[in-house]
Simulated assay, not measured.
Amino acid sequence: MRMLKFLLWKELIQIYRDPSIIMILFIMPMIQLLILPLAADYEIKNINLGVVDHDHTEYSRKLVNKVVSSGYFRLKDYSPTFQQGLKAIESDKTDLILEIPPHFERDLVKENQASLFVAVDAVNGVKAGLGGAYIQRIIQGDNQDIRTQWMPEQRLNPQPVIEVTTADWYNPNMNYRVFMVPGILVMLVTMIGSSFASNNIVREKEMGTIEQINVSPIKKMQFILGKLIPFWMLALVVLTVGLLIARFVYGIVPLGHYITIYIFATIYLLAILGLGLLLSTYAQTQQQSMLVSFFVTMIFNLLSGLYTPIESMPAWAQMITRFNPVSYFIEVMRMVMLKGSGLADIKYQILALVGFAVFFNSWAILNYRKRSG
């Protein structure tokens, strides 16, 4: 126990003497947490719209005004022919073309039906899909308004009508920041924990002090714990700073208890830091360690459900997410922050993280003597 105390003191002094570590640990995550949620927005706005109006009637003008006034589209091009409108898409001036055919108003009034053509630039698939869905919904709404205006009032409607009422639970205002900030905070804590832990033992190898540690009476478990605990403590401090930013900058107050978040984060960091130390026992240089750590954390973050729902992934990717600690923490953070879940609600995630922590740290302890001793 005394040897562990001295080793912890040595690590903390070494961190304190390196100002770059403090800056990377605290300043960079704060800046990233302030910037990333502003950029990571699921709602697409400012879609550049091109219009080709062959009708030039009151109904066509009302339709264009309704599309533009929705707030999702900006009228950037008004071409007389479709070919000219297509050139605007090819030059990246517009993202979408709404073509109104000749006799649009006449067909709508006399035949009670009319057709429209929408061409979407699908280079950006997400923007194309949402832009097409937005304009289709606006056109359907305009169509419903016209039907309501033209249909005579009837005491009894011969056509059955189904009315659907929706309610958005846990995020009633559909604020994407409430959904994204907890996940981004998990990503930042993961990157910091794994990268610093993966460089820890390698730094001892490059400095030549690993041989002195190997011949000392320090046990393997004490050595791994001495490398793990300081960054475990600092990662919890980073998590605290992130939660303060979420509360006072974005106004995100968890419906659950902060204690639930910290209990799960404690176990999670043991698993992530154990993985970083495991990678460090295999690497011979800090460059190797950083590259491998970046590769692993990138896969973890992309398959975590932060940007893409896990349910929409292929079956093989969903299987991989079961072995991804980051996906469990993001799920728990959103459950506690948005749903107010407690420890009883996340017991399966806790058991999974305990398994990851035991597995990675045990492997690191066993592999340390094998590779270095």
Rank of each mutant, 00 (worst) to 15 (best):
K10Y: 08
E11T: 01
E11L: 03
S20N: 11
L34Q: 06
L36F: 08
P37A: 01
A40C: 13
V52M: 05
Y59I: 14
K62N: 14
K62E: 13
K62H: 10
K66F: 11
V68P: 07
G71T: 05
F73E: 06
R74S: 14
R74P: 01
P80N: 14
T81D: 05
Q84T: 10
Q84G: 15
D92K: 08
D92E: 12
D95E: 09
L96P: 06
L96W: 07
P102W: 04
H103G: 09
L108F: 06
Q113W: 11
V118I: 13
A128M: 09
Q140I: 13
D142S: 15
I146D: 05
W150Q: 02
T165F: 11
T165I: 12
A167Q: 12
P172R: 02
N173I: 08
M174S: 14
N175T: 00
G183E: 04
L185Q: 06
V186L: 09
L188A: 10
L188V: 05
T190K: 07
T190A: 07
I192H: 10
V202S: 00
R203P: 02
G208L: 09
G208S: 00
I210W: 11
N214H: 14
V215L: 01
F223Y: 11
K227H: 12
L234Q: 00
A235V: 14
A235Y: 10
L236W: 10
V237R: 02
L239N: 00
L239A: 09
T240P: 09
I245D: 08
P254G: 05
T260W: 04
Y268A: 06
Y268L: 03
L269I: 12
L273G: 10
L273R: 06
L275H: 10
L277I: 04
L278W: 10
S280W: 03
T285D: 11
T285A: 08
S289T: 08
S293V: 07
F295I: 11
F295P: 07
T297G: 00
L303F: 05
L303E: 00
P309M: 00
A315P: 02
A317W: 14
M333R: 12
R334G: 02
K339V: 01
G340S: 06
A344H: 13
D345P: 01
A352M: 13
F356L: 07
F360E: 03
S362V: 00
R369T: 15
S372A: 15
